[in-house]
Each structure stands twice: as structure tokens, then as C-alpha cells.
């Protein structure tokens, strides 16, 4: 398991789309360092013969039939929108 120096806060914060203040970076680096060091004890466990558990009680083929149901009215859809116009959500122009 990688060591906690590998925790590249700037890169990770960028992936997570959260801007961190220098103070936060410093604090998080230390705190998460502790946590990662603690987590490192999982390396003691021999998992070579173990299947991962995604769901405690797995079942398969959970689906619904293809029937369209009434959804939200445009009003309800946009009720919580920070900015809206012409029945659409508005953001500053997205440049690709």
C-alpha cells in the first residue's frame, strides 16, 4: 500500500473539485496522514484467497419494466435552481 507522502493534496482536491486554503491543506495533510497510517494495518491481512464484498447480501437482476411514469413538473424541476431562465438551468458559459 502506498505511503502517505503519496497523498498529493492538490491533485486530489482538483479531482474532487474543492479548492482548499493553505491552512486546510496543511491540516488535512497531517490528519489524513494519520488516518492513512492507521489504515495501512490492512496490509497485515492475507486477502490473496478472498473475494471482495460489494453488497452484504447480493442478488442479481433487480430491474423494473419499461413503463414511463409521470415525473416532475418543470416548476418543481427548477424550484431549487440557483439560476434559471427559459425553463433551463443556467451556468456561466462552459468552454470546451
Amino acid at each position: 500500500m502506498p505511503h502517505n507522502e503519496d497523498l498529493k493534496l492538490d491533485h486530489v482536491a482538483n479531482l474532487a473539485r474543492i479548492s482548499l486554503t493553505p491552512e486546510e491543506k496543511e491540516r488535512f495533510a497531517a490528519q489524513l496522514g494519520d488516518v492513512l497510517a492507521y489504515i495501512a494495518q490492512l496490509n497485515e491481512v492475507d486477502v490473496s484467497q478472498v473475494e471482495p464484498t460489494a453488497h452484504a447480501f447480493p442478488v442479481v437482476n433487480v430491474w423494473a419494466e419499461d413503463r414511463a411514469e409521470a415525473g416532475l413538473s418543470v416548476e418543481d424541476a427548477l424550484r431549487n435552481a440557483p439560476e434559471k431562465r427559459d425553463n433551463m438551468f443556467v451556468v456561466p458559459k462552459v468552454v470546451e
Binding site: M1, I39, L42, V50
Partner: peptide, 18 residues
């Protein structure tokens, strides 16, 4: 993040099994 999935998430899922 890239490169760490097996070391962390996958391993944790296996420990979860145990």
C-alpha cells in the same frame, strides 16, 4: 484515484468479506 484502487478499495472490500 488512479493506481490506488487495488491497494485500498479492493483490499478493503476483501477485508469486509473476512
Amino acid at each position: 484515484s488512479s493506481g490506488y484502487y487495488d491497494a485500498y478499495y479492493l483490499r478493503a472490500q476483501k477485508v469486509r468479506t473476512l
